[in-house]
Write a protein that binds this DNA or RNA. Structure first.
Lengths: 179, 179
DNA sequence: AAAAACATTAAATATTTATTTAACAAACTT
DNA sequence: AAGTTTGTTAAATAAATATTTAATGTTTTT
């Protein structure tokens, strides 16, 4: 019996535990399951080409191409430009702190920006209603209530931005050290 | 021309700005678009019944029922037990700080727990390979590398837990005040 | 206890999203 | 410049998810 194969199989099995767990939690980052297991697989390699990915995951090349693109968008994978080959090669980001930073800061800034803009616009409109003397008291009161509701939420969006800033700058690690 | 209707329409339009923005960013919280706009709609009401939701969103009642259940899971909506009616009523959580806490702590703890467990299991297996004198040097070296790789990632998962703790306990607000 | 009101589950349908096969485009090699 | 290798886009297919209609269960009222 081939001993070497057995050794590799054991190694592979151990890796699969971690790969499975990473892939399963990657749905939290909004990527498709295939992109999740793609990243997890790359995590144990120092670099991979599209053809190696296809072979390893037994999927089509376009699927790998789009998966890798998604992962690049959230900077969990980087393209490298190696000499001696025409194939593009890709490297998984292995620093989870960095992945965390890129993903959540991007996400929170989008949320904050979009909602803040909508709030500003809405507040102006509420204000017009409130100031308009021809508008009934009931509607004015509702407008006032709504104005205050969204006004209060601004604290949250500003806080979310400060959290993102603090993570991006690394200041958060003064408060919560890496180890 | 009906003046009252016009007033309400203006109010409605202003609200819609904010509702649209909230609904659009709710995909970040892993809920379906319909649940997103359901939450956003409820945000401007003090309470709603399933029938009111159905009417307002022009969707089926089961759809509202399942949407509300999803939102309850992440505690963005709570059921209330009002007197005087048999209808269940639901209230949107209006404190975004609280929604943030519940959602991300839940998420990060799941990620941390699942990966930590997988890592512990894998490390034992890597260790067996490393200690086995019959295993080839190449495989042992790979096992050692992989062992170290996952060992390093533990810092991150522990940090993630500490972040969740700090948010749940409110200690984070000593570092990053709410306003 | 029967009927009515409401909410939920189940099955069927529709919609969206992911994946593949096939066609195309770009870059390199000879 | 022609041919080959590689990567991406487009169209078609497959799979997953959301939504609806219909059926069922549960509570309240009479």
């Amino acid at each position: 019996m081939d001993k070497t194969k057995n050794e590799f199989a054991k190694l592979e099995e151990a890796k699969q535990h971690v790969i499975g767990a990473i892939a399963e939690t990657m749905d939290l980052y909004g990527v498709a399951p295939s992109a999740g297991s793609l990243y997890a697989t790359m995590y144990f390699k120092d670099k991979m080409t599209l053809d190696e990915m296809r072979e390893e995951l037994e999927m089509s090349k376009p699927s790998m191409s789009t998966g890798v693109r998604k992962l690049q968008e959230i900077e969990m994978v980087k393209k490298t430009f190696p000499k001696g080959t025409r194939k593009h090669t890709y490297v998984a980001e292995k620093d989870f702190f960095r992945s965390f930073m890129v993903f959540y800061c991007q996400m929170w800034e989008r949320e904050s920006k979009m909602n803040m803009e909508a709030i500003e616009a809405a507040q102006e409109e509420f204000d017009q209603i409130i100031k308009d003397p021809t508008v009934s008291e009931e509607v004015v009161n509702q407008a006032k209530e709504h104005y205050q509701l969204v006004e209060n939420s601004k604290d949250y969006y500003r806080w979310l931005e400060s959290l993102a800033d603090s993570i991006r700058s690394g200041k958060i690690f003064d408060f919560l050290p890496k180890k």
